[in-house]
Nucleic acid binder design. Structure first.
Lengths: 102, 102
DNA sequence: CGTATATTATAGCATTTCCTATAATATACG
DNA sequence: CGTATATTATAGGAAATGCTATAATATACG
């Protein structure tokens, strides 16, 4: 639903990082955290609802995989502010002039 | 403190957008929202703590301005997933091969 | 079938979040 | 000074969050 909310939690960001490396089962993900499998399962539901991960069934396992396309929205939202940190100038409208070091 | 938390709220993102246009006083910001000035003041404290805004005193007014450099962290975190939506391939490890359209 | 494994659903709990209302503080202005 | 304006601090409340423990469900496997 809300991708900003989905990535607000550090454990969920970590889950996304692990899954962007490769798809994994829930138990495999749990081994990287200090919380119970219940907590991880709940985090995965939130990521799923936010469209950040997908899952498929494989026997008794549920294999989760990353769908970071959903992060495009966040990336684009932050992108509009990029000139603030890439420029030595803080003023808007001047950013078109800088071509060095980019 | 936590920039991911700071931007998780839609009102706070809106505040940042208003301030990146130009600096504004609190009352000026409040006029764009449906909540009380107390709520806006609290949101501004969170943005301030996250380093996303700065403020200065001007008479009885507090003038807030955007400091979106703090968003660099989020931008870079999402940047690492960009290939997922820019590529026609969803698999990791294959992205090195595509050189067209980039 | 019966048991083990993997995952999800649910209830409950402590904490946090976001809001309002109100009090307190600071400056301006007559 | 006394009052108005601008903002922040604080208390309180409803709802959400993140977790645990336990129950339920689904599949595997002997």
């Amino acid at each position: 639903m809300d991708v900003y909310h989905a990535i607000a939690d550090a454990n969920r960001r970590r889950l996304l990082e692990l899954l962007s490396d490769r798809e994994r089962s829930v138990q495999e993900l749990v081994s990287h955290f200090d919380v119970t499998i219940g907590a991880i399962s709940q985090h995965l539901q939130i990521l799923l609802a936010g469209g950040l991960v997908a899952r498929r069934k494989e026997g008794r396992f549920r294999i989760y995989s990353a769908r970071p396309e959903a992060l495009k929205e966040v990336h684009e939202w932050t992108e509009q502010y990029r000139r603030f940190w890439e420029s030595r100038l803080d003023r808007l409208g001047d950013y078109l002039d800088q071509t060095d070091e980019v």
